[in-house]
Amino acid sequence: MPLDTSSYSLALLRLDGRRWNELRRIHAVISSQPAADGSSYLEMGNTKVICTVTGPSEQKRTGPQQPTGPTASARIDVEVSVAGFSSVDRKKRSRTDKRTAEMQHILVSALSDIVHTHLYPHSTILISLHVLSLDGGLLAALINASTLALVDAGIPMSDYLVACTTGSTVNNASSRAVPARQTIPGIRSMANEVDDPLLDLNGLEEQDLPFVTVATVGSEKGRVAVCFSETRMMAERLEEMLAVGVDGCQMIRKVLDASVKAHGRRMLDDT
């Protein structure tokens, strides 16, 4: 039985040794599959995602719900597939899995806002995401990988869409009431139990703690584009969680920006 999130209060260190406001290691590669129109490979800790962008390509004329008229702009399709070997228990998630469907929907609506789709009327941009390894922050990794792949594909967008998760160390003492046999007099006052916001949760932390995925567009004065949570949390904690998340997005943005620029330099050097 390894330690769990309740040990955070002992030294204000998380399960993997991070402090509350530290991101996991990010490793980003652009044009990971040169054959695709745009592609990226992104690691956030042990969450590993490959993304390829196909298009914009001409829309196939099938289905009755074709948008018509001059305002018709490009449609974004997102396919997420989670590999069976991605998590500890080998388990195939079907494409019709509700959580996957919801994530696809979030990606479509967030990306449709920032991609200049009006430039490509009557066409489709297909984003395929493959999750190779899963250790928390899935939606955030999917968003970040999509952004990089779209940049690689050269599709105009208003700014980077970057995301990360934030959680909150709620206090577990009352519920994990496996009592100490003897109450020891003079116990340090428990009133100031730690309830810190946490940045970029790993898989273990996600299982235990309430968390939100936040995505922002743009730098300092950016706006929040996605705010998504599947856990219950105290309303009063949300504000500080969002604040930490927005700051986290800025950090990620810098990392992604650096890797885009490095890629650009390499391309110039090569030619």
Binding site: V178, P179, A180, I184, G186, I187, R188
Partner: peptide, 26 residues
Amino acid sequence: KNRSLPLYHRLVALTKNEDKRCYVFF
């Protein structure tokens, strides 16, 4: 914690007792 949960809880309680000056070093 692996060996005995009750003892683990007693140990954690101990680190919260100011008089004992018990420090958890990670």
